[in-house]
């Protein structure tokens, strides 16, 4: 079975084609165009959605071309129906509905967070992991239990991605700022004390962000101290969730999983807790169509396509409300 997946929840517009066979799945193509806001600024939802619309046909055509397929070869279509920015989400929704109704292809709305998790599982081979999803939209620890991804810890306010981006932007960096902060942090070992807030299995970053901005006169020290504090908090929350759930695998997915220092910390935690460590490959860590296509294929094993009047987009759509039937 072949699925076309469309992703446009935030800054990335992506189309991908994934094939599912008995053994697993294979990505045939994955094409992306990313909206870049001006330096020091965040995503402007209207501008981002304009970018997505303008690039949509090129990306879709290129994705078919790279997979060496025609639209008539596609068995099902899936799109990221949420959570995300409303104007951006609607782009994938409109394209998916259009192609689906014109070519009579079954359509599947897919949860973006589950897309991250399922593709991570496919590409790493993790079977029953505790998942740490760290991105601009999410910071949560989840594990599958009785047909739902249950949350075993999450941020109570901003996400890890937002923390890094908002701090970086306050220094005038271009979003996403993670890489730049990671590079600057490597140049310092001078730890400046910052607030460390772990509440049970949950974390809170808002106070840390304000405090980090106050010490930003030395950028290197500030970046180092911010990373050390925030990642140690995530590390502790992860360790608590691992110890509570007694899972033997940890899978890390989402844009921030590209950060080497974060991986290093989590790897050491896994050694201590005697559990296997999986991290999604860097090219599929951020948002992409493959995540959506693969989840669509999994959904299709348990469900028929959605009726056109049920193909909404939902800005607020929590991971733990989705029933997993496959």
């Amino acid at each position: 079975m072949i699925c076309l997946g469309i992703e446009s929840t935030a800054h990335t517009f992506s189309c991908a084609i994934v094939q599912k066979n008995k053994k697993g799945g294979k990505i045939l193509s994955d094409v992306r165009k990313i909206y870049r806001p001006p330096e020091g600024q965040g995503i402007h939802p209207r501008e981002a959605s304009r970018h997505h619309i303008e690039n949509s046909s090129d990306v879709l055509l290129e994705c078919l071309k790279k997979a060496n397929l025609k639209i008539s070869d596609i068995d099902i279509i899936s799109y990221a129906a949420g959570p995300g920015l409303g104007p951006c989400l609607r782009v994938a929704g409109v394209i998916a509905r259009t192609v689906s109704s014109y070519y009579k292809i079954p359509i599947y709305p897919v949860n973006h967070a589950i897309g991250h998790i399922e593709l991570g599982k496919l590409l790493t081979g993790a079977k029953d992991p505790l998942v740490l999803l760290v991105s601009g939209g999410h910071t949560m620890l989840a594990a599958l239990k009785q047909k739902k991804w249950r949350i075993f810890g999450e941020t109570l306010d901003t996400t890890l991605g937002q923390l890094l981006d908002q701090f970086g932007r306050s220094l005038g960096f271009a979003s996403p700022c993670g890489k730049k902060i990671e590079d600057l942090a490597l140049e310092s070992e001078n730890y400046v004390s910052l607030p460390y807030v772990v509440k049970g299995n949950d974390v809170s970053f808002s106070g840390l962000l304000s405090a980090a901005k106050k010490i930003s006169s030395n950028q290197k020290d500030a970046c180092y101290s911010l990373q050390e504090t925030a990642f140690a908090m995530i590390g502790e929350a992860t360790e608590r969730a691992l110890s509570f759930t007694e899972k033997k695998e940890l899978l890390i997915v989402g844009g921030v999983s590209a950060n080497k220092r974060l991986s290093e910390i989590l790897k050491k935690i896994c050694q201590r807790q005697k559990c296997k460590f999986f991290v999604s490959p860097i090219e599929y860590a951020g948002d992409c169509g493959s995540q959506i296509a693969w989840t669509g294929l999994l959904e299709a094993t348990a469900k028929k396509g959605a009726k056109l009047d049920e193909t909404f987009v939902r800005q607020s759509w929590r991971l733990d409300t989705v029933e997993i039937d496959y």
């Binding site: 594990a143 239990k145 249950r150 949350i151 075993f152 509440k199 299995n201 949950d202 733990d320």
Partner: peptide, 13 residues
Amino acid sequence: RLFKEILNSAHVN
């Protein structure tokens, strides 16, 4: 809230 979260995830039924 934490206790509720834990019940929701570890003691679903």
